[in-house]
């Protein structure tokens, strides 16, 4: 056989094997909570670096957004897996949505409040009294803030709540003492601006003040778990493995590149700062396993929502949290 013919035969064989493998892949949709950003780096890493394929899955990782609700898409059958915040999950569960939590992405909620320590004296929750605090009414920062106020016995009349939007001007101008932001996203950008202006800044962490409000988690439907357990298992295995590797400092450059390919709006310098912060929030201690579901924090989140009448009744948290036996 001529060498050129040999090469063509090998190429054809590889092509046929690839086609056969592709046919075998099970296709599922995975709806993220927000647009592609650092909070989805592991999802994108798992998708682009073949973690799902190796587990026999073709996963379409779709960006979320303000008008997207992964939980509704799950129920309507448009998505098989999704990312949702704990308050969304509990609200849905309280209204009978058949969902289960597979993994918890953040061990510490990235929602923090930024403040200027040289202008705002703050060393403990009690000192929130008398302060002007930014809050997104209706958002989960409102629930967290109200939980903080309740925890430290501060009445709403003892603080000034300032309605927050995308515009940070009120904080820059010093009209508000505390401004809510995501520690692994906007905080990096705002901090840089304040540093350039020669100002000091610090962050109020609700978690450190005793309010453990769960953030993003990976969810699916009960039907998926019951009827396609193998698919769920393979998806979760691939996803967690992808996340672990994306957060591994040794793979930092590859993880950043994967994210930059998907999110062309955020400069590389910003992503480089965001990734280590994200790692800290997802793996706050070396011994913590990525994706661990913190049942105590879930119960506290449920209690917060219930105490603020944000859910109509109590939710059986244990039945929501799924673990493979």
């Amino acid at each position: 056989m001529k060498p050129s013919l040999k090469i063509i035969c090998i190429a054809c064989a590889i092509f046929l094997i690839a086609c056969a493998q592709k046919e075998k892949l099970e296709e599922v949709n995975y709806r993220l909570k927000w647009l592609y950003n650092v909070s989805a780096v592991g999802d994108l890493y798992a998708e682009t670096r073949g973690y799902f394929t190796r587990n026999g899955l073709k996963v379409n990782v779709k960006p979320g957004g303000p008008e997207r609700d992964a939980l509704k898409e799950l129920e309507l059958g448009h998505a098989h897996f999704g990312v949702a915040s704990a308050d969304q999950v509990l609200r849905a569960a309280a209204k009978g949505a058949p969902i289960v939590v597979l993994a918890q992405l953040f061990q510490v909620n990235p929602l923090h409040w930024i403040y200027r320590p040289d202008q705002t004296v703050f060393s403990g929750g009690e000192e929130l009294k008398g302060k002007r605090i930014g809050v997104t009414f209706g958002g989960n920062d409102e629930a967290i803030l109200r939980a903080l106020l309740a925890r430290y016995g501060i009445a709403e009349s003892q603080v000034t709540l300032f309605s927050v939007r995308y515009d940070y001007t009120p904080f820059y101008e010093g009209r508000v003492d505390f401004w809510p932001l995501y520690l692994n996203a906007q905080a990096v950008i705002i901090a840089e601006k304040l540093e350039k202006a020669g100002e000091t800044y610090a962050f109020l962490s609700p978690d450190r003040l005793g309010v453990r409000f769960v953030a993003n988690s990976v969810v699916t439907t009960r039907e998926m778990v019951e009827k396609r357990p193998e698919t769920v298992k393979r998806f979760l295995t691939a996803l967690l493995e992808g996340w672990r590797d994306a957060l591994d400092p040794r793979n930092q450059d590859q993880a950043i590149q994967v994210l930059l390919d998907a999110d062309r709006e955020t400069p590389e310098a910003v992503v480089r700062k965001q990734l280590p912060v994200t790692r800290e929030l997802m793996l706050p201690a070396a011994r913590i396993e990525f994706g661990k579901i913190d049942a105590v924090a879930w119960k506290q989140t449920e209690a917060i929502l219930r105490s603020q009448n944000l859910i109509p009744g109590s939710v059986d948290v244990e039945s929501l949290l799924f673990t493979f036996k």
């Binding site: 939980l71 509704k72 129920e75 309507l76 609200r91 849905a92 209204k95 009978g96 949505a97 058949p98």
Partner: peptide
């Protein structure tokens, strides 16, 4: 028709 929960579409009661 699709047996959706009250989270997706609320019931008349709600």
């Amino acid at each position: 028709g699709l047996n959706l929960s009250d989270y997706v579409i609320p019931s008349p009661d709600e």
